[in-house]
Design a protein around this nucleic acid. Structure first.
Length: 186
DNA sequence: GGGAGGATGGAT
DNA sequence: TCCATCCTCCCA
């Protein structure tokens, strides 16, 4: 296969730009037997900078959110509600806290379900997204704007004006269905 | 050392 | 609508 993982430079750009291009890209994970599983990303959320009140980074750096302040193209994985692992990829330059939360794959809806199904947890936190660590992102067929929607983020009602910003990007359900068909036929 | 709240999901 | 379940952060 001629598809290579996105390089770190791909993630060293404005968070919303990266988020948009992650729609249709492939999340790839290699299990213990060496088998690689690839699935299209269909839902993401952008968390952008120190002023974003919905972001963990809005109250400054802590031990937990340190990866958000680090280099782009690294994973930020944290536990939510004491039981759910959330998978984010860091964007933008060192010192600028931003990341994209991966919320859904073509046949797994929900950020907690996808990490559970793929066995993603704290082990990946702060690691770079590449083949060496066994979890990375590859390019996929581009998704046209007409097949996407921009919506408010989930569960951030406390974030004031930031709660309403359309930082949640999704592939329309019709297009996701088509992706599923392709996968099952293949 | 304690307590409040949280980037959820599944059952009721 | 409720609740499982626990980490993180802030305050004392």
């Amino acid at each position: 296969m001629n598809v290579r993982p996105f390089p770190q430079s791909f993630f060293d750009r404005p968070t919303l730009d990266v988020a948009r291009e992650l729609l249709g890209a492939r999340l790839a994970i290699r299990d213990a037997t060496g088998r690689i599983r690839r699935q299209a990303i269909v839902e993401v959320e952008a968390y952008d900078g120190p002023d974003d009140l919905a972001s963990h980074a809005s109250r400054g750096p802590t031990e937990r959110n340190a990866p958000m302040f680090g280099p782009p193209g690294h994973w930020y994985v944290y536990l939510c509600y004491g039981m759910h692992w959330m998978l984010n990829v860091v964007t933008g330059p060192v010192g600028y806290p931003a990341a994209v939360l991966i919320r859904g794959l073509e046949d797994i809806s929900g950020p907690a379900r996808l990490t559970r199904q793929l066995g993603i947890d704290r082990r990946f936190d702060s690691l770079v997204a590449n083949r060496h660590v066994g979890l990375w992102i590859e390019a996929g067929p581009a998704v046209p704007d007409a097949e996407t929607q921009r919506l408010p983020r989930i569960g951030v009602d406390y974030a004031g004006d930031w709660a309403a910003r359309p930082y949640r990007l999704v592939v329309s359900s019709r297009t996701v269905e088509k992706m599923g068909k392709k996968t099952h036929k293949a």
